[in-house]
Design a protein around this nucleic acid. Structure first.
Length: 562
RNA sequence: CGGGGCGUAGCGUAGUCCGGUUAGCGCGCCUGCUUUGGGAGCAGGAGGUCGCAGGUUCGAAUCCUGCCGCCCCGACCA
């Protein structure tokens, strides 16, 4: 592709709306342009990379027996009503105004619809069906460029099996395929066991990339590769020590003391001598949750302990329930259910709120004074805590979810009546799995991980072009002649070449733009070296440069781009 | 949906508090000449409903009201 005739609108300056590196680079390298919040047009260079990623996905999906579909984005709303997902998605689903259609946010229903009545016999299973298409979700807040958009490209696959045992096999196939895909894309990722949530599946794994732009928070152990969403992550934590001499309860005046830090400062005590109280509402009834010191309540853990949704009590409610405002609430005299984090188990000589504003109570003995308390793991773990698997330090950080594989079970086959006949002629719902990859996210994550101050650093697997050929002074006939010939020859050898043949820009401009666009190998044709029958090669990733004679160029490139 | 910020030429911005020339600057773009190995120089030029709609005023980018859009934090995230 000749740059003089191409639409690659690069930017020298950073657009103000872009914050994270991948977004900035996609805009600066002329790969995408925004149409509206969370809605992006892919320009030729960006779309070329999207096609590379899609091709890798396609190859690996086909390798496990996947069959590619092309499905409608416009769906009759009735199908979605059969699985109650119009309600489940709520405002996240786009609705068409002048006909009863919705824009598909995913395709479980549609794939199952096609399986229904067609996959009738156990002899026809298993099947793996997939598609790589645009999905639509009315995200309340699109962000981070292409990472969270209102429309986005997704590869989603669905497996159809006769049993949960066979589903395990399909699941394993996808697990392998996903690792192959992300490896080939050059992504540095890790796999997190996730809770399967409301989808009713038994197992689920997320493929994640560490990034401050991520929306998930995960705990990761570098040493043993333990990884878990912080919502469910555990760590080795010592419980507060029990002291031999258990004091009596006593009340202390603590004017204007609200936080644990203030309390510790005021009384000159340690954080682990305190028990923080949080009031949650569950089933319309208050529950007092006691945490040690500044430990944060993990609401996901709390919900799984209590069963069902919880919400923090409103400030107005707190006074009604406890007689005090937040900051002075405690277990002594509290009339409703009390649960506490495991760290507090059987602790004594603790300080907590007195359920009276500006007072705290000391000398609390959990065994003696809070006899009905129940203990659970309720804390949100923190970076630096000890891994329960190997004893090394855990790291907690933000991550982007690139892919998700999970075992759906029969929710959709039952909802839509997709059944098959087994060996005994008995009708059973098809057992399904669901497997997604955010295609643009692969691109964004790659860029997050592969750039330097000058721009993108493409690996040959995703690079839009393998070679960036530059004719430095295109007003000199020798340079024009030599670079044009190279352009043709290299293409004839099977390389994809971006040729900066512009006569209007200077050498320095071409170098900087080449660094921004980031093709793996740059070939620089200048008149001085050409006089010696040589050109210069630059490796983008290392910055290494070498002079190569035209005779040896072909073999050198084979070596570099093998 | 809550909190914060922003909206002036393709991009980046000054001017807005305190209303008053023809809305300024850098990059980019067009023409010409020069230059040609790390984002060139000189000269000339094009390009603006100052987000939109009302209002106040002799006069509004600037003040007031409403709306729209974008970014960040939070809520949300099958």
């Amino acid at each position: 592709m000749k740059l003089s005739k191409s639409f690659v609108p690069t930017l020298k300056e950073v657009p103000t709306d872009a914050v994270i590196p991948s977004h900035i680079l996609m805009l600066r390298a002329g790969m995408v342009r925004m149409l509206s919040a969370g809605i992006y047009s892919f320009l030729p260079l960006g779309y070329k990379v999207i096609k590379r990623i899609s091709d890798i996905i396609r190859e690996e999906m086909d390798a496990i027996g996947g069959q590619e579909f092309h499905l409608p984005a416009l769906n009759p709303i009735e199908i979605w009503e059969q699985t109650n997902r119009v309600e489940a998605f709520g405002d996240t689903m786009f609705h068409i105004k002048n006909r009863d259609y919705v824009l598909a946010p995913t395709h479980e229903e549609i794939m199952t619809y096609h399986a229904k009545g067609v996959l009738k016999s156990y002899k026809e299973l298993p099947q793996i069906w997939y598609q790589i298409q645009t999905k639509f979700r009315n995200e309340p807040r699109p962000r981070s460029g292409v990472i969270r958009g209102r429309q986005f490209l997704m590869k989603d696959a669905y497996s159809f099996d006769t049993s949960f045992e066979n589903l395990d096999k399909s699941y394993e196939l996808h697990d392998k395929a996903y690792r192959a895909i992300f490896d080939r894309c050059g992504i540095n990722y890790f796999v997190v066991g996730a809770s399967s949530g409301a989808m009713g599946g038994s197992k689920s794994e997320e493929f994640m990339v560490k990034s401050d732009a991520g929306e998930d928070t995960v705990a990761f152990c570098e040493s043993c590769k333990y990884a878990a969403n912080v919502e469910v992550a555990t760590s080795v934590v010592n419980s507060v020590a029990r002291i031999d001499d258990s004091k009596e309860l006593f009340e202390v005046s603590t004017p204007n003391i609200k936080s644990i830090d203030e309390l510790c400062g005021f009384l000159n005590i340690n954080e682990n001598q305190t028990a923080k109280s949080r009031i949650y509402i569950h089933d319309e009834k208050p529950v007092l949750v006691l945490m040690s010191g500044n430990d944060e309540v993990n609401e996901t853990k709390l919900e799984s302990v209590l069963g069902g949704n919880v919400r923090p009590g409103h400030p107005e409610e707190l006074k009604d329930i406890t007689g005090a405002d937040a900051g002075s609430i405690g277990p002594i005299g509290f009339k409703h259910r009390i649960i506490a984090d495991l760290r507090l188990k059987d602790g004594n000589n603790l300080y907590s709120g007195a359920n009276k504003n500006d007072f705290h109570i000391g000398g609390i003995d959990m065994k003696r004074d809070v006899p009905n308390v129940e203990y659970f793991d309720l804390r949100t773990i923190q970076s630096g805590e000890t891994c329960t698997k190997c004893g090394e330090k855990l790291e907690v950080f933000k991550a982007i979810e690139l892919g998700h594989i999970f075992k759906l079970g029969t929710k959709y086959s039952e909802g839509l009546g997709a059944n098959f006949l087994d060996e005994n002629g008995k009708e059973n719902p098809i057992v399904m799995g669901s497997y997604g990859i955010g295609v643009e996210r692969v691109l964004a994550c790659y860029l997050e991980q592969n750039h330097d101050d000058n721009g993108i650093v493409w690996d040959k697997s995703l690079a839009p072009f393998q070679i960036h050929l530059m004719g430095l002074n295109m007003k000199k006939d020798s340079v024009v002649e030599a670079s044009e010939k190279l352009y043709k020859d290299l293409q004839a050898e099977g390389y994809e070449v971006l040729f900066d043949d512009r006569s209007t820009v200077q050498a320095g401009f071409k170098f900087n733009e080449a660094d921004l666009l980031g093709m793996p190998v740059h070939i620089i044709v200048g008149d001085k070296k050409l006089a010696e029958n040589k050109v210069e090669i630059k490796i983008r990733k290392t910055g290494e440069r070498m002079d190569v004679s035209l005779d040896e160029l072909s073999s050198k490139l084979k070596e570099l781009l093998a």
